[in-house]
Design a binder for these strands. Structure first.
Lengths: 150, 150
DNA sequence: ATATTATTGCAAATGAATTGCAATATCAAT
DNA sequence: ATTGATATTGCAATTCATTTGCAATAATAT
């Protein structure tokens, strides 16, 4: 099983002279347990039930820190242009993955693809650019919503 | 050569009982002439030199309308997470295209790929979802910045 | 236990984008 | 050309997600 987010965070904090607080621990646990790709608001609402004194800006600060440490990845999907969603799926360790968002239920499906390397290398050799990362998002209707269509 | 944005807009406006104003015409011309993928602010700054009474909210309203009519496409790129950039490259008519953004000079390169259809169909058949559109962004360093690296 | 200082909660600020409204300008009908 | 109906504008105020300054609090090393 993958290394827990809290463990990874603790290691980095130690290096940086940072501190593991109860708030951080709670937020990290929530991000990990919440399926899908929650927004800051959603994480706050969920964590706040457990610790009612937890503040929204602490959530934002933690999320920003995690992003800077590359422990999570922020995404913006089309429909909800304004708010960020956070992806706790370990980056680096396991293979790159991409996303599909259902335009009806807004659910997100992750997938990977062997073809991507090819697209990258074709682009690189054609333009002389070096590609470090790729973000691919499909939009459409998921199997579930196709069945129960109104 | 492709159909001018102003012409397309005029057709749609006629259908909708809308009006082609001097402001709109100016904004449309600017979007078309500005290379790259300008932000609302950039379009405003540029158009404002020609018509100093033009207001920023008119630019936003026009951009939103054009987006709703699918005449332009909004994008968000990683580095500048908060503001939208607009892509005037005709959608629908010509083939889908994707983007590369240089992390140094922030320039955007457009490209297309035959492989994408394959990725789409593999994903569709694996999940039973229907895919309507795809957004792919590469991040890295462009040829120019690789040479003149500091 | 204590001192140091990273982190929190809170409230205020930011920045991009949107909106309400009175004034203005476009276009169709005369 | 003139007119009238109303779509669109400019302006200011507002929204919404996110960030930030600061005094109070709490985590860690000693």
């Amino acid at each position: 099983m993958p290394i827990k987010l809290v463990t990874q965070a603790e290691t980095i904090l130690k290096e940086q002279g940072g501190r593991m607080t109860s708030q951080r621990k709670l937020i990290l646990e929530k991000i990990e347990s919440m399926s899908g790709h929650p927004t800051a608001e959603e994480i706050y609402l969920n964590a706040n039930q457990e610790d009612p004194t937890l503040n929204l800006s602490t959530v934002y600060r933690t999320l920003r820190w995690l992003t800077d440490q590359s422990l999570i990845t922020p995404h913006r999907f089309d429909e909800e242009r304004r708010q960020e969603r956070f992806d706790a799926t370990l980056t680096g360790t396991n293979k790159d993955h991409y996303h599909f968002q259902c335009q009806q239920c807004k659910n997100i499906i992750e997938f990977s693809s062997d073809q991507m390397e090819k697209i990258k290398s074709i682009f690189s050799s054609q333009t002389g650019s070096e590609v470090f990362s790729a973000e691919l998002v499909f939009y459409g209707v998921c199997a579930n919503c196709r069945e129960n269509r109104s």
